[in-house]
Amino acid sequence: MSTFLFSLVFGLFLAAFVVSAVGFFFTMKWRFRPGLAALVLGWAALGVLLGLRWKDSGHLPLSNQYESMLFMLWAMQAVFFYFLYRSLDALEWLSPWVSGLSLVCMGVVSLLNSAMEPLVPALQSNWLLIHVTTTMLGYAAFALAFLGGVILLMKNKLKSVGEKEEALDSLLFRSCALGFWLLTLGIITGAVWANSAWGSYWTWDPKETWALITWIFYAIAIHLRRTRGWRNTRFAGLMIAGFVFVVFTYFGVNYLLSGLHSYA
């Protein structure tokens, strides 16, 4: 069942990407809607896949990188749909880009170990839910800010961006602010959990250190926007650079540095 659902999700994201990319060649108002519909269906199927893993394993599907990345992808799309809803559809032309990034993520996930393992003692805590979901939601919001940043920097080559630049710049900041708040919550819940599990809320573990590095970077980016007026392409550059820290914190630390988060 899981294999079928994984293939279905992949197929729907592929369909969403192709159909919505074709929308760029047309001018009618609803040209991105079919692709968006496929993306929503893929998102729902991914939710079912995660729910089934939760039911089968008996614990939240957030215990390894395969599960957390699937959740991050699901969360990124949820954040996108939220902003789409709030923007009264002014951002629906972003759906091919979101579908493309989703496809890349699914490709990466397919390379990870999908085996369901019982939880190690350290992860048997209710803090797992709030710590991992908030951190992954934060990463998801930063991923959306990164995507918006890439599109904004390519605006000279993309006719479609043109007059939507302001909405895109606003999306960048909103995603960044949401990601920053969620990352803050993720770091704080991690610290409270560490204090209740190991007696120390901060140990300069590599994952903690890199999460702090990411937090400081986005704090600087927000200050640059607020006090130095860095908007549009400058802020887009910051969002792209910030996402490098996010990716390293999420992936790089696990493979290159050892620490308390070796299972994450």
């Binding site: 250190t209 590095i213 400081i216 970077f217 600087i220 200050h223 540095l257």
Partner: peptide, 15 residues
Amino acid sequence: YTCASLLLVGCVLGG
């Protein structure tokens, strides 16, 4: 900006 950038560099070195 100076302090935050230096802290960032320090954390990267320690990381």
